[in-house]
């Protein structure tokens, strides 16, 4: 009972559909869906195409690069499990493939984060089962 590095923040809800995404993360792959009938890019993962209602959806691997649509650095009044970890940066990232993802911005000075800043995915292991995609500023290319 003296484990000090136990992961205490909320883990994602695993469903039949989300398991495919999170299994991808475990292999350092950021997956999204594309409709094989109409080409619509779909995220969060869905059962049906949000454009044409097709169930003929395929998974693709994102290059993990995009821009910060918006962000906030939380200093106080975070959800209880996150209070020991303030400040932390939370952002909505617009991926180059045309979908958005919520994550944390890491490996940078929080004061330097800005909207439209280019970022890239970096995978952080949380538990044996779950690896979280996070984002850091893209340096050069």
């Amino acid at each position: 009972m003296t484990q000090t590095n136990e992961y205490t923040k909320p883990l994602p809800l695993i469903t039949g559909l989300s398991k495919i995404f999170w299994d991808g993360c475990k292999e350092n792959k950021l997956l999204y869906q594309e409709c094989k009938d109409c080409g619509e890019v779909i995220f969060f993962p869905k059962m049906f195409c949000t454009n044409c209602m097709s169930q003929n959806l395929g998974w693709k691997e994102s290059k993990g690069k995009g821009k910060i649509h918006t962000f906030t650095v939380t200093y106080d009044m975070a959800p209880p499990e996150f209070m020991p970890h303030v400040p932390y940066a939370l952002a909505i990232i617009a991926l180059d493939e045309g979908f958005r993802f919520m994550s944390n911005i890491v490996e940078c000075d929080f004061d330097k984060i800005s909207c439209d800043m280019p970022v890239e995915v970096v995978f952080e292991r949380a538990t044996d089962e779950i690896t979280l995609p996070k984002f850091r500023p893209t340096n050069g290319n």
Binding site: K9, P10, L11, P12, L13, I14, T15, L17, S18, F21, F44, P45, H69, T70, F71, T72, V73, T74, M77, A78, P79, E81, F82, H85, Y88, L90, A91, I92, F101, M102, S103, N104, C115, A126, I130, L132
Partner: peptide, 22 residues
Amino acid sequence: SQEYEAPFGFSQLALAGMLQQR
């Protein structure tokens, strides 16, 4: 989204922050 957003520390306060930031 409990599947895709909950692990990252979103809250109603963070929502206000993100909206105001943009």
